[in-house]
């Protein structure tokens, strides 16, 4: 499958945490701890602080998320328009893969 430009795959080992962060921010801005809690609730994975901030820094550098003014020491982040596009493209791709996988399971 051809890789889309600026895809999450470019983030290497941070691509999966980055996807989870984008999903977490899709409904509302969140700070680091809230993201960790939300991601654990949604996916069952608990991201370590290093993994979380490694992914946040890379997403921010690509302007897929942006920081909001800090609340005390905690800084919330929100999804940008570009981030929404990337997330949507990735979810569409996953849905297509999942559809094929399910179809093959039924065939067997």
């Amino acid at each position: 499958m051809k890789k889309a430009p600026d895809s999450l795959n470019d983030l290497g080992r941070f691509s999966e945490p980055a996807l989870l962060i984008l999903i977490s921010l899709a409904d509302s801005p969140k700070h680091g701890y809230a993201m960790t809690q939300d991601i654990e609730a949604v996916s069952g994975q608990r991201l370590g602080p290093g993994t979380l901030y490694g992914a946040i820094a890379r997403l921010e550098a690509r302007k897929w998320i942006e920081p909001l003014p800090a609340d005390d020491r905690r800084r919330p982040y929100r999804l940008t328009g570009a981030g929404q596009k990337v997330l949507r493209a990735r979810l569409d791709s996953l849905r297509a893969v999942a559809k094929i996988g399910h179809a093959r399971l039924v065939e067997n």
Binding site: H31, G32, Y33, T36, P49, L52, Y53, I56, A57, A70, D72, R73, R74, R75
Partner: peptide, 14 residues
Amino acid sequence: VRYGSEFLALLEKT
């Protein structure tokens, strides 16, 4: 400088 404060806040809660 960029992430220290918020990262520390997260570490303190983890």
